[in-house]
């Protein structure tokens, strides 16, 4: 177990040094208080105090559009399954998003395994970054137990005022801190400061919804027919924002993109959403989630009930993106609280 520190005023230089050697992706300000993970070449382009990005880092693990297969029909049916990948360092990932990546890992490792995802994920180096204060009122990371690091990174940085302390979690993490002599090994004082940060954090970060996490699957089991779904369904515009920004939503469509010759082309997968009108439609025209209320319910059940049955974990990270992005102000924390109230 190795801990290191780096002075806060050297962080930008360190990121620049990393970016000189390989592709680095970090949170960048997009205006209106919003952020996005984007490739950077200089450390100063990155923002280390940020609220969850518009899209979570899933866009690197499972890109919006991804080629699965290339085909050529000029002579018979030639085809080649492919994986598109790029080595990169993903810098500054919050604990909620680390949890999101862990969920995607679970899904795509489940048999039948998704090699496109699994091969790509191993090319991405992850440097985590701890939040010492809440991003905003939408977060429910403490409820979901994702406000503190639970692994899933190569190196994890916690701000300690004038310096960052880094937890080296892997061999790759070890090589990351060797870069350019920016880091030194942590001392007793650094550990004491880290302890103090965590102590204060435990005071500030509380269950954001008055609900016992262990009760949630049971609450949902009783919530199939509640009127709450109708109420939020009436407000929902089906814009799909909530699922597209969700770090654990992974539904997709598969479509062919022929080249202009119509003889060759690609089979791709593209993000899809259970909120979209045609998502649950069958060839005969019947849609099995025609009502917006049923689509809303499905989204919540895919976070708080079905994955608990299937994978033994919640698929909500508490990042708050779905609530933050919703024009209709459908708020996950409020919905959970409402469900809990009805259950009691």
């Amino acid at each position: 177990m190795r801990y290191v520190t780096i002075p806060a005023d050297k962080m930008a230089d360190y990121i620049t040094a990393l970016a000189r050697r390989q592709k680095v992706v970090a949170p960048v300000e997009k205006g209106k208080g919003q952020f996005a993970f984007e490739p950077i070449s200089e450390g100063r382009e990155a923002t280390l105090t940020y609220i969850p990005t518009i899209l979570p880092p899933k866009k690197f693990f499972m890109p919006q559009y991804e080629t699965l297969l290339e085909y050529d029909l000029h002579e018979g049916q030639k085809m080649q399954a492919v994986v598109e990948l790029e080595e990169m360092v993903l810098f500054g990932v919050h604990t909620c998003d680390l949890a999101g990546i862990a969920c995607l890992n679970t899904v795509f490792s489940d048999r039948p395994k998704d090699l496109n995802y699994l091969i790509r994920k191993n090319k991405i180096v992850i440097i985590g970054l701890e939040c010492v204060a809440y991003c905003d009122e939408y977060a429910s990371c403490a409820l979901m137990n994702n406000h503190l690091p639970n692994g899933g990174y190569d190196l994890f940085l916690t701000p300690l005022g004038d310096r960052y302390i880094g937890h080296v979690n892997t061999y790759i993490g070890d090589s990351l801190v060797e870069e350019g002599g920016f880091f030194r090994d942590a001392t007793g004082a650094d550990f004491a400061a880290l302890e103090e940060v965590r102590r204060r954090k435990r005071e500030v970060f509380h269950d954001e919804v008055p609900i016992d996490l262990d009760e949630i699957p049971r609450i949902f089991a009783h919530s199939l027919r509640t009127t709450i779904w109708k109420e939020i369904g009436d407000r929902c515009l089906s814009c799909g924002n909530c699922t597209n920004v969700c770090p654990t939503c992974y539904c997709f469509d598969i479509v062919d993109k022929p080249n202009l010759d119509l003889k060759s082309g690609r089979r791709i997968r593209v993000w899809d959403s259970c909120q979209n009108e045609r998502f649950a439609k069958i060839a005969g025209g019947e849609s099995f989630r025609k009502e917006r209320s049923s689509r809303k319910r499905h989204r919540f059940f895919r976070k708080f009930r079905y994955p608990v049955d299937r994978f033994g974990k919640f698929f909500c990270t508490g990042c708050g993106r779905c609530s933050r992005t919703c024009m209709a102000r459908i708020n996950l924390k409020e919905t959970l609280a409402q469900l809990a109230r009805e259950y009691v």
Partner: peptide
């Protein structure tokens, strides 16, 4: 390293 496409 830039974007790559590998056969599976």
């Amino acid at each position: 390293m830039s974007k790559q496409k590998l056969p599976i």
